[in-house]
Every structure is written in structure tokens, then in C-alpha cells.
């Protein structure tokens, strides 16, 4: 662990009272300023790990250090460095929006006047200022998610943990939340993100750990991980119908319909060459897209290889 380490887990283990072992001794370092993805299938141990880091779950053994503060010996300082956006809504739905944020600031010892100023700042940034006097129960799902982000940020934590922050949120709001998270990360907040939307992790995160059955099975940079993808599948939309599926050596092509082709392209073949051959055969490609998210392909492969079938929502 160095001075630039935001979070350090060492041999973190958790066995629940019913005997289920959720974490089997994980080691993990997240560097200051990072946007870090912690991915894994349901029940892999992500939420348990987050619960331990945020003191909501008691660990069985191991150590957790947040910006150099050990959870066992310097809990107060460690907690002051953390902001949590949990998976489930966990605010009092009978409290007005602004009170939820102001009260959270109070629990960190921030004076009420300052807390109101910060609440205004974050609620405005997240598009909730107009709803500040509404009872939280009257907010939409997307607004509730944003309220939890405002609440987690009100004490300006250097480390923000987001446990599926965009679950159930429509794409427009999700993308605006991505922009907001990018901005606060660029401003210096270290972010740890767990999500089932792998496109989200690929878009936002620079480093990644994949956890499965209570163990870290991959811990690397997003770029290096994506480089491991040996084969990518693209969907090609054609200008005119083709009579039969083109046969091009080195590429596997399938006709999905008369004007749509699916192409498997390995890393040692180039897309340029494929287009050249298709052009020579009189086939004009209008547009091209990945069949599935690249990270999703890798994730499924890695988790399957670890002996557990992943459950990843589309």
C-alpha cells in the first residue's frame, strides 16, 4: 500500500452465521483518483465486500484500509473518507429530499448552514433542486437514485462507492449520471463502481476487478482486459440485399437476413481487409456495431471459465 492508495483490502474473509462463505480472502488495491469497476455475477461477494468497507457488515478476518486509515484501529477517520450509494433505496421515504441530504451532512459534523449550501449545490447538479421539498416517496426511481448520490457526496468524501447506481434508470438519465460521475472523478474523487451494465463499466472505469465465488479472478486495467478479447463479433448492415452469404477466408460470416451480416473477426485479422473484400464482391456496408458489449463477452467467458455461469441482465 502506498500513500496514493485509496482503498486496500488484505485477505478479507467473510463467512455468514449460516455457514455461507461470501469472501474467501480477497486482496485488492484501488489507487487514489481511479475510477474502478468491481464486477461479478449475483452472489459473487461484491455487496459483502462493500458492506465490510462501509462498516455495515462485520468481517470474519482480514483488513481494510481507507486512505491509510485502518477500519479496526481508526474507524472514525476511515468512515469520514467514504461515501456510499447503496444498491437498495435506504432513506426515510417520509422525509423531504433536502432534509435527507442535510441530515447526512450533520452526521459527519457539518454545520447546518453549510449543509444547506452543499445540499443546494448537489441537488442542483443532479437536477433535484426543484423537488427539494417533496417527500422522498414521491420521487421517481431515477430521482431516488440521484438523491442517494447527492446524499453520499454531501460530506465531500475522497472515496465514493457506487453499488449499482443506475439500476432501473432510463438510458437518458443513466448517461447524464455517467457525465456527472466523470466530472466528480476528474475533480479528484476516487470512485468504485459495481454494476450489471457492463457497457457502463467499460465506458467509465479505468481499472477493473472481477470477483466470483468470493475470490478475485481478474484485477487489471480495462484496456489490458479488453486486449484479451481474441474474437469480436460485429453486425453489418448492408445497403442492398445479398443472394448468399459471402465466403471470405479468415472470417466467419453469417447472414442474419438479406441485408444483415454477422462477422466474427479475430484480433489477427483486420476490419479494413474485410471491407476491401466485401467491396470487391459488390457488397456495400452502411453501418457496423458490436454484437455485444466487449466487456460483457469477456466477463461471461471468465466467469464461465471459473466454473460459475454468470447471470448478467441484458
Amino acid at each position: 500500500m502506498t500513500m496514493t492508495t485509496a482503498l486496500s483490502l488484505r485477505q478479507l474473509k467473510k463467512t455468514y452465521a449460516n455457514g455461507f462463505t461470501a469472501l474467501r480472502g480477497i486482496d485488492l488495491d484501488v489507487q487514489k483518483g481511479d475510477f474502478f469497476a468491481l464486477l461479478g455475477p449475483n452472489g459473487a461477494g461484491k455487496s459483502t465486500a462493500i458492506g465490510i468497507i462501509t462498516s455495515l457488515v462485520n468481517k470474519s478476518s482480514g483488513s481494510v484500509t481507507v486512505f491509510g486509515h485502518d477500519l479496526d484501529t481508526d474507524l472514525t477517520a476511515a468512515k469520514s473518507c467514504l461515501g456510499l450509494v447503496p444498491q437498495e433505496f435506504n432513506f426515510n421515504v417520509f422525509e423531504p429530499v433536502v432534509e435527507i441530504v442535510v441530515n447526512q451532512a450533520g452526521y459527519y459534523g457539518i454545520p447546518r448552514d453549510e449543509a444547506f449550501k452543499r445540499a443546494e449545490e448537489f441537488l442542483k447538479q443532479l437536477g433535484l433542486w426543484e423537488k427539494r421539498r417533496e417527500m422522498a416517496r414521491n420521487l421517481s426511481g431515477g430521482m431516488k437514485r440521484r438523491l442517494m448520490i447527492a446524499r453520499a457526496l454531501v460530506h465531500r468524501p475522497p472515496l465514493l462507492i457506487l453499488d449499482e447506481p443506475t439500476a432501473g434508470v432510463d438510458i437518458e438519465i443513466r448517461r447524464s449520471m455517467w457525465e456527472f460521475l466523470r466530472r466528480i472523478n476528474a475533480a479528484g474523487t476516487t470512485i468504485i463502481l459495481t454494476t450489471h451494465y457492463l457497457e457502463e463499466a467499460e465506458n467509465l472505469c479505468r481499472n477493473i476487478a472481477i470477483i466470483d465465488a468470493g475470490q478475485i479472478i481478474e484485477n487489471t486495467s480495462m484496456k489490458q482486459l479488453l486486449n484479451k478479447l481474441q474474437l469480436e463479433t460485429f453486425v453489418l448492415d448492408l445497403r442492398a440485399p445479398v443472394a448468399s452469404c459471402p465466403d471470405i477466408p479468415g472470417y466467419t460470416l453469417r447472414c442474419l437476413d438479406e441485408t444483415t451480416l454477422e462477422a466474427d473477426i479475430s484480433r489477427d485479422c483486420s476490419i479494413n481487409q474485410l471491407f476491401s473484400v466485401l467491396t470487391a464482391q459488390g457488397v456495400e456496408v452502411l453501418s457496423m456495431r458490436n454484437k455485444t458489449n466487449r466487456l460483457e463477452q469477456l466477463f461471461m467467458h471468465m466467469v464461465d471459465a471459473n466454473g460459475h455461469r454468470a447471470t448478467v441482465p441484458a
Binding site: T54, S55, L56, L75, T76, A77, K79, S80, L82, L84, P86, E88, F89, N90, F91, N92, V93, N103, Q104, Y107, Y108, G109, R151, H155
Partner: peptide, 18 residues
Amino acid sequence: YGSKFQHNIEEMLVSPTP
């Protein structure tokens, strides 16, 4: 109990409030 039921007790538990 209401705070436990709605899980908003966690707001205090994650904070440094003793």
C-alpha cells in the same frame, strides 16, 4: 424500528457518528 425497516439507520452507521 422504522429506521431499521427502511434501512435508513445505515445513514448513521456509515457515518463517523459514535
